[in-house]
Design a protein around this nucleic acid. Structure first.
Length: 258
DNA sequence: ATGCCGTGGAAACCACGA
């Protein structure tokens, strides 16, 4: 079973690239972030035409997450990260697909730090930790996939020294990610490639992709029950080089049947 | 060191992203 995550940066602006990638990479499940579309502007016909069921949680202008599946309909579990009734951002959706709980998340950017946006990021991270802990305790096969907006280690940044004070790399955020993983999760891409410089995002400007000035911020975390099923993990790096690409590249894992 | 680019939505610029 192949599960992917892809921050599309505008699903309607990205539709040709998204469809081309779905055709080429053929993930069984795809978690999408940054739809940047209200609920009623999700391009369902095109997605279904590509052979996928979909559930999504849209929002006007910003955020927005979706779960696509070609291995049966995703059975929605929730479309809000628990713990804050005031939080109106569309940043989380969760479904049961083919016997696996798939959480699709778009963690807040948090810049500038310090400040209210950074506080929101840390609070969101805490809520994610609590929810992830509950998934661990339920002992279900689960994948938490998405744009975490954190580079976990120096190996995950092209130039660590210039990112020290950034909300994506500050110690509090890296610690939050570390603590989350320490619950028993496996960072699938890093597990498969312990020492490689692997990036999932390259800025649109400063020729970042051509210089490989990238960040690894899109992650797939596997619950303890899935760790042994991990067969492969990689970034569809070349997709970032396509015309009208997102600034992120898709990341995927391949799991053995349970 | 820097939103220099890209997207969406409103307004002919601005918010936001990482």
């Amino acid at each position: 079973m192949k599960i992917a995550t892809y921050n599309v940066n505008g699903i309607n602006a990205r539709l040709p690239v998204l469809l081309r990638w779905l055709q080429e990479s053929a993930p069984d499940v795809a978690c999408l972030q940054e739809l940047k579309a209200p609920q009623e502007k999700f391009p369902l016909e095109a997605i279904e035409g590509a052979g996928y069921h979909a559930i999504w949680h849209g929002q006007k202008s910003w955020n927005g997450v979706a779960i696509l599946s070609r291995v049966g309909e995703p059975v929605e579990v929730r479309r809000v990260l628990p713990g804050d009734a005031e939080d109106v951002h569309s940043r989380y959706i969760e479904a049961a697909v083919n016997g696996i709980v798939v959480g699709c998340l778009y963690l807040p950017n948090g810049n500038p730090a310090p400040g209210p946006k950074f506080d929101y990021k840390l609070g969101w991270f805490q809520r994610l930790q609590r929810h992830a802990e509950s998934l661990i305790k339920m002992n279900v096969p689960a994948v938490l996939a998405g744009d975490y907006n954190v580079m976990p280690t120096e190996l995950d940044v092209y130039k660590p020294e210039s990112w020290r004070d950034d909300a994506l790399f500050r110690p509090e955020v890296r610690e939050a990610y570390h603590d989350l993983v320490a619950q028993g999760w496996t960072d699938a891409l890093r597990e498969q490639h312990p020492d490689e410089r692997i990036y999932t995002f390259w800025d649109y400007f400063r020729n970042a992709y051509a210089r490989n000035a990238g960040l690894r911020i899109d992650h797939l975390l596997l619950s303890p029950t899935l760790r042994g099923a991990l067969r492969d993990a990689a970034v569809d790096n070349h997709v970032r080089g396509w015309e009208k690409s997102s600034d992120h590249a898709p990341v995927w894992i391949e799991l053995d049947a349970l």
